[in-house]
Design a protein around this nucleic acid. Sequence first.
DNA 1: ATGTACCTCTTTTTT
DNA 2: AGAGGTACAT
Length: 669
Amino acid sequence: MKFSKQGLLALNPPQRAAAEQIHGPVLILAGAGTGKTRTVTTRIAAMVHDEIPPSQILAVTFTNKAANEMRERVATMIEPEQAEQLTISTFHSLCVRILRTCIERLGYKRTFTIYTQSDQLGLLRRIIVRLAGRDENLDAKLANTLISQAKNTGKPPSDREEALINDVYRAYQKELKQLNAVDFDDLLILAVRGLEENPDIRREWQRRYRFIMVDEFQDTNHLQMTLLRLIVGPEQNICVVGDDDQSIYGWRGADITNILEFERHFSDPTVIKLEENYRSTNAILRLANSLIRHNLNRREKTLWSGKGEGEKTRLISMPDAETEADFVVGEILEKHRLRQRPYDDMAILFRMNTQSRVMEEKLRENQIPYKLIGGQSFYERREVKDVLAYLNLFLNHDDDISLLRVISTPPRGIGDGTIELATQFSIDHQISIHAAINDLEFLGALSTRAQKSLLAFAEFLNRYADIAATKSANYAEMTRELLKEIDYDSFLRKGCKTDEEFDNRRRNVAELIDGMHSHFEKSKRGLRGFLDSVALMQDREDEKKDADGKGVSLITMHAAKGLEFPVCYIIGVEEGILPHSRSLEEGSRDEERRLLYVGITRAMQDLTITWCHSRKRYGDKMPCMPSSFFRELSKEELIESSYETLSAAPADEDFAADYFARMKEMLSG
DNA sequence: ATGTACCTCTTTTTT
DNA sequence: AGAGGTACAT
């Protein structure tokens, strides 16, 4: 068989063992850079070549990006028709697929809308104001976090019986249901409930997927584990891949015990450790090992590699963040110009997004291209949300949050007073706002003017809802016409301070419509499918643009998980930042340690860690201490120094300026 | 309906 | 320091 030669033989022995162990529970502990993706994709290919129907294989990931990558990699190893039959999906889209078929049994309508975080916040703000008045100090974001935690753990958000948050939680859940909407957590909760309460549905899904694989298993939460236990059939063919040492999403509900105590959930698994690292030099790996050793609760792994010894990591203290930026950027410039190091090979890693600012400035000053990873999600942009609100409303009239956005975007003669009345009427009668403004009793109580505006709005809505509900309708074209009809451009222009901003926002709308066009051509799932995938795929605009662009990567350590760079600078590693002071209060020092571990293991050859003696915080300068993690790093693997000694300064005050001026001159000259 | 002044907050953010 | 949200005024 051609495959076994190409595929399995390319793996090292533990990887191959993992790929060949197809039956029963399997736990693959894949350390950083140990060829996890290759192992998983080869395993899938091996199953297919073993005559397992690809339609019976399910691979679950956390991100769409990971799912797409896996799909592409597997596609190179098996026949295209086979690859097409595989299911490779995120947890959340898997849940949507389950729910679109059975949510009616749970008391929701099949047309439910998925609420993103900003929708949730909008709803929560309304509820908090209604329940507690304006001057209540419960903020929507905190409520959101608490409610999400409650949903994930099954415990009430507060153990104080009288606490406001409990009422907010109850009201929120009730209203979501009335709005025919679900949030991200509900997707999991409802899918679990659907499977738990309906043995026929459970059996159906268990039969559909006899072989299940889960990527980044250390990031699964309690609900995801429950879901897995429900869809894994009696054969127990479940294979999970992960690294407890890289569990850095505990604050988002990830439950590290899922991987630490895997045996409790699936008995007698085959456990395979991947410890041969294909990324970093041994000097870097020993440094990483020396740190992570200090975590007590872990599955012990010791990474090693065949990449040779390599250079020791430099640990350098800086006077302040500005100097730190000067230094790092100076080195990047030098490595690029003098040593032909491509900018793409280099990354600056940090704990907080705010730390990237100084770096950006200095990079721009020196005209070094860079890509900032993270930032505002494309689908969270105002103009994009506007359009999506229209489309969501067309398919789900009960979606009050979208209706409230649409009804005055642009203004159409329906004022705050009328909206307030409609909202109140909808609450009193337990109906949606859409139902309220179509209610004869309600309309009768209004002025003729308001009546006219509302009737026009209702007509408009129905007209588009009819088109939107037509399976064959080209919703991209429909959207284009819609925007023309409401003269959205004029509205948008008014809301923009500059022409540049206007252009930008208009481009975003155009891009959204382009996306709809291609979805319309590729997918049979219609507008509903498009909106689902949009809600579940918070593509980051900058990333998309930058991914193909060239430049130095500026990235948080969280976002860097899974990436690698020949040259890495981890900046601002001070006590209170890494470990973050809030994590110390919350007792998650171990997770911070893992975060630094993730940072270190991104580096392939050349790693530098810096910290500052002082830094501006919230405006004014504060003294800083080096991270307490430095004490845990093996001294043998480090070269410690300071900016002052490195720049070999004359005892002159402006030595720094002088030094860099000379260097710049040399480089550009 | 639109602007403006003030007030608060400030870790990470796969869906 | 800076952003983002709110409240109040126009």
